[in-house]
């Protein structure tokens, strides 16, 4: 094999190996490739809450790139927002894990 061909081959192996490493370590400069459901699950897991039972998945009426997951988990309820950016979905904001006041018919927050 010619020396130049060998160098080219080594460079291709290095390029593919580096791309594989970036993918494996989830180093994505252009955002993630996660689905909305997977992002919601990540949001709850990283908050050390849930997984909640999703009562309703609401696409925001004025922006289809935002979804709110309304759910309950044991003694808490939550409204978790995920937002579409680039190729995948990312964490938005929202309320996770508000204690349900069982003594009242309706628990109100943010009074």
């Amino acid at each position: 094999m010619k020396r130049k061909t060998l160098i080219t081959l080594c460079e291709w192996v290095a390029a593919v190996a580096l791309l594989f490493l970036l993918f494996k370590l989830e180093v994505y400069p252009l955002g993630t490739f996660r689905s909305a459901d997977a992002t919601h699950a990540l949001s709850e897991r990283s908050l050390h809450y849930g997984p909640s039972k999703v009562a309703k998945k609401v696409t925001v009426p004025f922006d289809s790139h935002q979804i709110v997951y309304l759910g309950t988990y044991k003694d808490w309820f939550s409204a978790d927002l995920v937002v579409k950016r680039g190729f995948g979905w990312e964490l938005g904001s929202g309320e996770s894990g508000i204690k349900i006041d069982r003594s009242k018919p309706l628990t109100i927050v943010g009074e």
Partner: peptide
């Protein structure tokens, strides 16, 4: 192909070092 290959190596290398 050479330019693309070397760009991948340099950019991926920089990102991995930052990580």
């Amino acid at each position: 192909a050479t330019v693309v290959r070397r760009m991948i190596i340099v950019l991926a290398g920089i990102m991995l070092v930052m990580w």
